[in-house]
Each structure stands twice: as structure tokens, then as C-alpha cells.
Design a protein around this nucleic acid. Structure first.
Length: 394
RNA sequence: GGAGGGGUGGCCGAGCGGUCAAUGGCAGCAGACUGUAAAUCUGCCGACGGAAGUCUACGAAAGUUCGAAUCUUUCCCCCUCCA
């Protein structure tokens, strides 16, 4: 079924306590060395960054979103332009998310708050029933229906290499009973996604199943077993991962429990530096997250441990006054195009002056930073010194 | 010389007798951001204080009033129009 795709585990952890592994995902548009980070280019564009800049920073793969492109400009339109790769100018491996997550962002406020458990109450703008999710388009307010079949159809027309089953992404503030019902509905939706995928399969795409189950060990295990027992190419871990970092690692571990580890395993929506190390050690192969590119647009430049300020955050905020007279690059040992020519002072000035270049320049640093991080993680696994690599980055 | 309009916190700009240390916006300072409705959002932003609070404030001075950024008088500046 996935004849043009493969996943090879090149090396397993040498450490008995951890499960990191080195792998290679082969797609029709190229290979992905894992562990890898997938950058979010939600609306067929990594905000502010061109495909040649992504290449220049050694980006392996990017992601676009079914929900956004479905609402505008529509998958038929993109298909008519030759598909997502041709349309966007990115000819490397591509991933599309199914739109399941967005269904929870359609109410007011932030999706993240909902999923991460920082805000209680369930979004109301999306109506979910067995058929699918009805919601108001973010683009023009029109009422739209996304079903598993429709999501797969849209993803098929978009033409990304790696596509994802349509699921219901359960929030944190929800009781166990609803979580279970929701998980079971996700499983039914995933089966429908798989059926639709098989119907349309022409060898150019591979399908992910998604593990749901909230914060409950029994559900996560059941969901993992469900996904593993169906012929998905790979697995993504989704849904709420709890409200604290520790809980997140626990939930990932729960999900890993029942998974077929011969398949690639993706952790949806996670991209903190320490989170990635934890995830990798739990056996995660790929991550995606808006964080590196989003914080860049807010003035945040990712930095390794040696460059952290007193807050010990994983980034420095270049808008802060303390960088006004700082003539150093973001990181003196960084090999990115931004650090090659721009000082913190200049980036600080550009941010204050509201020059667009700042957002792009910092994003390029963050992208290269993440790619370099993953390169060093891979080398660390190969050399058996991941812990040393971690101490440099965290 | 004549007629009119103004002077408010770093800037712009509301308020036009009490609920005004004074709406907004900008700038400034800080925080958040993890399957992107995000070049976004939140908080602080006269001085001193941790806070309660105290003090100094709406061009200047003098009045009216229980009470004035708001009313009166004089003065000082600015702008527009007519000569």
C-alpha cells in the first residue's frame, strides 16, 4: 500500500533506559532523516520564509493545514495549480494536518489554551456529530462541513506526501467519559479516513493514524493499539497532552505503550527544546510546532543553554532594552545566515522600527537552530552521547 | 492693527463644575506564546511606596465655589483668517 514510502530504523538506543532511535523516512519528494522537526507552513507558506531560505537552512520537511486551505483557496484550486509542492515552490517532503485540531480553535480564544488545559470550557462554534464537524470558516464566515472523507479528499488534492487521519482533538477540560466517547469517535473517523485513503491511493501519499485518549493511561494504550492494528503508514500522537510538562511526558509515554514502534512516530504540536529531547528519548521520530516560527515574529530568538538570560527561557526576547547596544550575533557559534551578518542590536532596532526584515531574520535563525538541533540529536544518537548533546542545548 | 481658535501627563488627543491622577492611541517597560483565525495577545506606564496611601499635577497668576483640567479676570505663548 505504501510502495513509494519506507521507514528504516538505522539505529536503536544503546541506552537501556531510553528509546531514542535514528531513522529514515523515504517519500516521493525525498528522504527525512529522523529525529526530525517539521516546520509549520499552515497556509502553504512558512510565514515570511521562502522555500529557498528553508533549503538554505537545511530544512527537511514542512507542513500545511487542511482546514485552512480547505476554507481558502480550496484544494481543487491548488490541485489545478499542480498541487501543493508545485504551487508553493517547496519540492521537498510535505505533510498536511487533517484539520481535526482546528475544529477546537473555531470558538473564541486560543486553541492552545483549550488543549493545554489553561482555559476551561469547550469551544462552541464547531458542532461535532458522527458525520463530522460543522464550523464557520475563518476566512469568510461561511458554514462548512469537514468529514473524514472530505479531509482525505482535500489532502489528496493538496498532494502532500504524508497525510493525517481526521480526528477529534479532545481538550483537557473535559471529563473522562467524554474523552472516551470522543476517542472512540476518532477511531471510527480514522477508519473512515483509512477507507477513503485506500480508495484514492495512487502511491503518492502515506497516511498517519492518530492516538487520542486524553490523559488516561488505559485510553492512550487502547488508542495506540487501535492505530497499530490498522494499516496506517505511521502514527501521530495527538489530543491534549495534559496541563504541565511532566504530565505531557507521561501522556506520551502512555501512548508509546501500545504502539507499533516499527512505524514512524510523530508527536503533534510539540517543539520546545527540552520537550524534543524528552520526546526523542521516549522514541518519537518527528515533531512539528509553530513555536520556533511564531516566537520569531514576536522577537524571540532561540538560544542554546550558554546564551540564556536569567529567566532560563529557551529563547531571548530581542525587543528587550538590554539588547539595544549588544553588537554580538544572536549566537556567536551559530551557522545561520542571520547570525553571519546581523547583530542583536540591529535586530532589536529592526523590531522597534517595525521593519519586516526583523521577523524574517529571526525566523531564519530559529529554523536553522531547530534543524541544527535535530542534526546534533541525530549525531548524538549515532555516537551514543545524546546526554552530552542535551546539556549543550538545554 | 482687527477677527477667531488653541495651550492637558514623553508625543498625539479626549474631557469642559464633583464619580479625574485624568478616556483613547502612540512611544516606553515587562510577560505570554508548543498539530498558527498570531508581524499576535496580556499587564504596567506622574512621583515616592511592597501595599494601604501620601504628594505634585491639565500654560502662569489671582478669583468664584463646600468643590475647578472644566467658570471669571489678567498675563504669557502658539495657530488661522482679514488688513
Amino acid at each position: 500500500m505504501y510502495k513509494n514510502f519506507s521507514f528504516n530504523i538505522l539505529q536503536q538506543s544503546k541506552n537501556l533506559k531510553t528509546n531514542e532511535r535514528l531513522g529514515k523516512i523515504v517519500t516521493p519528494h525525498g528522504e527525512i532523516q529522523t529525529p526530525a522537526f517539521i516546520f509549520c507552513g499552515t497556509k502553504a507558506s512558512v510565514k515570511g520564509i521562502s522555500p529557498y531560505q528553508l533549503k538554505e537552512t537545511n530544512t527537511q520537511i514542512i507542513l500545511s493545514n487542511t482546514y485552512h486551505l480547505f476554507s481558502y483557496p480550496g484544494s481543487a484550486y491548488i490541485k489545478a495549480r499542480g498541487g501543493l509542492h508545485k504551487f508553493s515552490g517547496w519540492n521537498g517532503p510535505m505533510f498536511t494536518d487533517s484539520g481535526g485540531f482546528q475544529i477546537f480553535s473555531l470558538g473564541h480564544g486560543s486553541v492552545a489554551d483549550e488543549i493545554k488545559g489553561r482555559r476551561s470550557g469547550i469551544s462552541t462554534l464547531a458542532k461535532i456529530d458522527e458525520e463530522g464537524a460543522t464550523f464557520k470558516s475563518y476566512w469568510d464566515g461561511s458554514v462548512q462541513l469537514l468529514t473524514p472523507e472530505k479531509s482525505i479528499e482535500v489532502q489528496h488534492e493538496l498532494g502532500a506526501d504524508l497525510i493525517v487521519s481526521f480526528d477529534e482533538c479532545t481538550p483537557y477540560h473535559i471529563d473522562k467519559k467524554y474523552t472516551e466517547k470522543s476517542m472512540e469517535r476518532s477511531h471510527r473517523w480514522e477508519k473512515r479516513s483509512l477507507n477513503e485513503f485506500i480508495k484514492r491511493n495512487n502511491g503518492t501519499q502515506a497516511l498517519y493514524g492518530i492516538v487520542q485518549g486524553g490523559i488516561y493511561p488505559d485510553f492512550r494504550k487502547r488508542s495506540a493499539e487501535f492505530v497499530s492494528s490498522h494499516p496506517f503508514f505511521a502514527t501521530a500522537i495527538g489530543g491534549t497532552l495534559g496541563s504541565t510538562k511532566e504530565q505531557m511526558y507521561e501522556v506520551v509515554e502512555m501512548a508509546m505503550n501500545g504502539l507499533d514502534i516499527r512505524r514512524p512516530i510523530h508527536l503533534l504540536g510539540i517543539g520546545g527544546i527540552s520537550d524534543i529531547f524528552r520526546g526523542v528519548k521516549l522514541g518519537i521520530d518527528t515533531f512539528d510546532c509553530v513555536h520556533p516560527t511564531r516566537i520569531a515574529r514576536h522577537g524571540g530568538a532561540l538560544v542554546k543553554a550558554a546564551y540564556r538570560d536569567h529567566n532560563l527561557r529557551e529563547h531571548i526576547n530581542l525587543k528587550k532594552a538590554e539588547y539595544r547596544n549588544d553588537d554580538n550575533p544572536i549566537e556567536i557559534d551559530c551557522d545561520c545566515p542571520t547570525c553571519a551578518i546581523f547583530s542583536r542590536a540591529y535586530l532589536h532596532y529592526l523590531l522597534k522600527a517595525k521593519e519586516l526584515l526583523a521577523l524574517q531574520a529571526i525566523a531564519i535563525h530559529n529554523i536553522r537552530f531547530m534543524n541544527k538541533l535535530m542534526e546534533e540529536i541525530r549525531r548524538g544518537i549515532a555516537d551514543g552521547n545524546l546526554t552530552e548533546v542535551e546539556s549543550k542545548w538545554c
